[in-house]
Each structure stands twice: as C-alpha cells, then as structure tokens.
Design a protein around this nucleic acid. Structure first.
Lengths: 245, 245
DNA sequence: CCAAAAGTGTTGTTGATACACCCATGT
DNA sequence: ACATGGGTGTATCAACAACACTTTTGG
C-alpha cells in the first residue's frame, strides 16, 4: 500500500550511484507517538515546542540517540523522561525520510509508538517541564514537520497490530470490564460491535482471567472485572491466533 | 513481540540526555531482501562482497542514499541496478540500529524487502558485474553484519503481510495455475493446504480472472491459467478482506 | 492401461450474526 | 419506576475441514 509501483525513472539517478556519499544526512532523531485511552476515546500525547521556528506549535515527543545506546533504548528513555513510566509496550514503526520533511536540513527520524494506561500516567507525570497535553485522535491539530503523517501511519499500524495480537490491553487499567475492552476495540477500529457476541468471542479465547472483584459505585448493575492472562497469551501465540472483530 | 518490557534501567542514561548529539551516527545505508519463488521454493537473492574485511562473504544487496533522493527511491534504484527490474513491490521493513551491528563504526541501515517474478529476472539480469546468487530460504549461509537478522525479520513480515493482502502474486508469473498459487502459500507460511478447499476459497474471493488459456506440454491434465485482477483488489481492500489460509 | 494432477461433490462442524430477553443497581 | 449497563439464550447462516470421487492428459 505504501510502495506499489512508483513511476519514477530509476535510470536517471543510477548513473551517479557509484559516488558513495554517506554524509548527506544531517541528523537522526526519534519521534514517539504516545497513545492513551480515556472515556472511550483514543488519545495521543503531544508536546509543545518552546524553541526554534516552530515555537508554540504542537508535535510528537522527540529526542536524540546517545552514543552506544541502542535506538530502542533511546525511545524508551525519551518516553521515560516525559512520563516517568518504564516497561511500556513500545514498537518501532519505520524510518521517515522524505528529503523535505524538515526545511533546510536532511533529518531522518525513526518513528515509534507506545501504548500506556492513562491511570498510571495521571499519577506519576509532570516530572519534566515540557508542556504536554492529551488530544483526542480526531481533534489533533496541525503538527510540526511530518508529524501528522507519522501519527497517521502509527494509527494504521495500531489498527493492524491490534487485530493480530491483544496489545490493546496495554491501554487499559490492569482490571477492566468486558464493555471497556469492547469500547476500546470499537474506538481503535472505528466499528460498532454487538455486545453479546463480543463477550462470547473474547471469553472463548480464554485470554482473560475472571476476578472475584466487581465494579463499585456505578449507577447500574456492577460488572465483573477481568485481567489479561499473559501465560495463556504465550501459549496461544505459539500456534497462532486471530483477533478479528 | 520485538519490544515488550525491557529490563534496562532507563535512569542511568537520562542524566546526559540534554547533550544533543546528532553526530554519533557514522552513516546510513539501505539493505534489501529480494525474494523470489522457484520450483516450489522461496528463495532470496544474495550478493558476494568483493571488498573490505568481509571479502568473499555473502550478504543482502546494499547501497547508499543520494542527495535529495527519497529513501524509497534509493531502494528502488539499488534493486534496479542489480536486476534491471522496475515497478517492483517494495516495502520498508524498519531501521536496524544495533550499536554493534558493524564493527568500529556506528552505521544504521534501513531494511527493505521486495518480491519479484523469477521469470523476469532470468531474462534481464546480469547487467552489472556483481556476483549474485539465489539461495533457498532454508539454505542461506552466515551473512555479513546483521543480515541474517534482517532476513529473519523480513520473512516474518512477509508471512504477516501475505495473510492480509494478496502480495504473493508478485512472486508468480503473470499467468499461473491454482496449484502454483497454493504451493506459494504453503511455502511462505510453512503449512499444508487442502487442494479442493483452497480452490474454492480463492475462487470465492473473485480476485482471479480465469483465462481461456491452459497449461501446455504437461504430462497430465492441463490446468486452467488465471491472472490476478488488480481492479477487484482495489474494491476489496476498501471494505477490508482476509487472507488467512 | 497407468500415473499424475485437475477439478467436483458431500457432509458434519464451527463460529459469526442478529436480536430478543432478563438481571442488578443507583436515582 | 426507570434508566443504564450487565449478562444469557437461541435460531439462522456462511465458512471451513475432511475426504471420496470423477476427469483429462501424456507416456
């Protein structure tokens, strides 16, 4: 989908291909899309830029790679510095490399996305003095550089991955109800689901541990709480399973 | 799967994070996994290195990015220089960035993979004087740098993508039989399929155009030839479809 | 005739879908 | 009482697996 037959004439540049020239890249950065889920809305954490030409505008959380640090480590570190959260689900998207993505310089960036539980974030955040704000996915403003494109790509990736493995659990509190989980899938995939059928399907997978606990202080029948069972997940991944809804 | 909770202590390096230092990367390259399908075997095209410390060893086809060239264009160009083929299916994998992947230097590489039809390759190849050879996927030797890892990753990606979209057609001649197609899926996914059921399922998708033509000079009943219908594919992708076998 | 692959038919099972319905709880 | 979400039951339909079977062709 990204890269079917392009009509560019390849011969045009092949003549000069012998000149090996690795110095044409001015820099490499990391940009991270931080997803959260709040009140049935998928949200993304954006930061405000306080310097340079893009002052006052919003963008993804970015950073640089330290010497001898793996790039995955760098991504974890950058997110940690803002959120104080460790051991997050974090996955590389791809390299974004359009020659014009940053003006006057050739900067490529490695995109990442991460999924976190908003409850954890609220408790521990704010250690660092960057202006950061959660935006509903449908209300994201114009961002700096190609960050809207990176966000669009990460959303596509999230939609794909969520149908192949139960990574969505990372966006929920440890204990959750089946309806919360259903709303999560509805929001990410942009579809409507049938409650009874969703229940049966997800329970049938045996991926959830039924807890003794129930919801409290809700103005309707309290729902049972469940938690994700990583043990069963391991066993199931080995023989492959499907998460289509 | 690549990047669940790592146990690295993030605080250790966060102290020095303020020093912005983009000059620590010595270079960026592109490496491309070229897949082909021949006599029911999935194969990969490797090249022999004729210079440096890795002389005589095999690796993926690599290259560099030219000034003002998009990285996708660079990948197309690099493959074109070796195979003389244009308009291939080509997709970025991700950035491979381990600090130790190349000794004494910090070189990151952007991985790509491409799917081509072996019949086209045989006719037009050999324009450039690089030693290149097709290896069956199960007989790939030890490769330079982290190229075995890149290959492993690309194979995983191929297996995933092939179950979501009919990209496998790119590995076959324009006209093919249903059994050829079935063998392709069997080989890529490492499973056995039931012939009658496969026929029905793939025909049911309406993605194939039945041709008037038949196989020739085969010592058994000649099979009908089919070709892939990109028009129908477009329509189907819009409402989403499934390629699980 | 036989071998080899092409291609069709049949049957039982599973799982998705649609939708009606009852249950528990706070206001 | 009633709104709100929690939770169960069931009938119908489509897809799939398993496997027996017939057809065509070259040698």
């Amino acid at each position: 989908m990204e890269s079917l037959s392009s009509k560019i004439d390849l011969r045009a540049t092949s003549e000069i291909a012998e000149e090996i020239d690795t110095a044409i890249i001015d820099g490499i950065t990391i940009d991270c899309v931080i997803f959260g889920f709040n009140k049935q809305n998928l949200e993304v954490l954006l930061v405000q830029h306080a310097e340079g030409e893009s002052i006052g505008r919003w963008g993804l959380l970015g950073g640089c790679i330290n010497t001898k640090e793996s790039i995955d480590h760098a991504a974890h570190r950058i997110v940690y510095e803002l959120t104080n959260l460790e051991h997050l689900y974090l996955e590389q998207l791809k390299a974004f490399t359009d020659p014009g993505r940053v003006s006057f310089k050739r900067v490529i960036t490695i995109g990442y996305y991460t999924l976190l539980n908003r409850e954890d974030y609220n408790i521990k955040s704010g250690l660092r003095v960057i202006e950061a704000k959660w935006y509903k996915i449908k209300e994201v403003p114009d961002l700096i550089f190609d960050h809207n494109e990176i966000l669009r790509f990460s959303l596509m990736q999230l939609r794909n991955r969520v149908r192949q493995a139960p990574i969505g659990f990372n966006l929920l509190p440890e204990k959750f109800t089946l309806l919360q989980l259903m709303h999560l899938y509805e929001e990410i995939l942009g579809i409507e689901l049938d409650k009874p059928n969703f229940r049966r399907k997800i329970l049938h997978m045996k991926l959830l541990l039924e807890l003794e606990e129930k919801q409290k202080a809700v103005s309707h029948r309290a729902a049972k709480l469940y938690k994700f069972d990583p043990e069963v997940y391991k066993k199931l991944t080995e023989k492959g399973f499907n998460f289509e809804f």
